[in-house]
């Protein structure tokens, strides 16, 4: 049974979308931009980064577009002073949380976090930097994990589980101490479930997961490959 068509408004414009689609999907299909960071098309959305928050008329709270299904007659606002203010703080907090020394990063210039910050006109953050002491896992022969640059979007966790089916990655610890870990907190190089497919590296929005041997600015991620792979899988299924 084909999905029912629903009418919703995004930023005042009337559009139609399929029942079951999230606000983010409906917006994308209709060429409306909503900033995202943890979302990657095809992966299970988790609503963690809170950048895709939108206003929905009649609801006081801010709604994550990536996990909220559309409802008929819904009216969504994707840009407002309130939204920009809150999205900006989310980005600022990511920068102070860990050590994103962009100038020395393999993903400098190709980083989703960095380009969102620039797009939002951020030239400084108002909070004090944490400068935590974090490790780098260089044990894998081809890839590396640099916790300094991880924003805990869990794209790696999901791509490994949803697409590769290997479940190498998981999040460990709580709160500010939360980290990405491979297997049962073993070194990545010692992981027996890792298939070395590299999907996690491609899915990673920053320089946290990268190919070894890249110099500054050399690591360009192919997130589109991941999405199209998922699409083709879905067609096959």
């Amino acid at each position: 049974m084909p999905n029912k068509k629903l009418s919703i408004r995004i930023d005042g414009e009337l559009i139609s979308a399929l029942e079951g689609q999230t606000i983010l999907q409906a917006a994308k299909v209709n060429g409306k931009y909503i900033p995202t960071l943890c979302d990657l098309e095809g992966l299970t959305p988790v609503g963690a980064c809170r950048l895709c928050i939108v206003e929905v008329s009649g609801i006081d709270r801010l709604i994550p577009a990536c996990t909220t299904p559309i409802q008929d007659g819904m009216s969504v606002t994707t840009t407002s002073a309130r939204l920009t203010h809150n999205r900006r703080i989310s980005l600022e907090l990511l920068f102070v949380e860990r050590n994103h020394v962009c100038a020395a990063c393999v993903s400098n210039g190709h980083c989703e976090l960095q380009s969102l910050a620039s797009a939002m006109g951020i030239s400084t953050v108002r909070f004090a930097y944490n400068y935590p002491k974090l490790g780098v896992d260089l044990s894998h022969p081809r890839f590396l994990l640099d916790h300094n640059r991880c924003i805990l979007c869990t794209r790696c966790v999901r791509v490994c589980a949803d697409l590769e089916g290997a479940h190498v990655w998981e999040m460990t610890s709580r709160g500010i101490h939360a980290r990405i870990m491979s297997d049962l907190n073993q070194r990545w190089g010692d992981s027996r479930s890792c298939t070395n497919c590299g999907k996690c590296v491609q899915a990673c929005p920053t320089g946290a997961l990268a190919e070894k041997g890249c110099a500054v600015e050399e690591m360009v991620k192919r997130t589109d490959n991941i999405s199209s792979l998922i699409q083709r899988r879905e067609v096959q299924a």
């Binding site: 988790v46 907090l93 500010i176």
Partner: peptide, 21 residues
């Protein structure tokens, strides 16, 4: 609450940490 935050979303994970500091 900071020590009980699960760490999934930015506001709670980093925001509370900044508040506490």
């Amino acid at each position: 609450t900071h020590s009980e935050s699960c760490g999934k979303c930015i506001p709670c994970r980093v925001g509370l940490n900044k508040c506490l500091r």
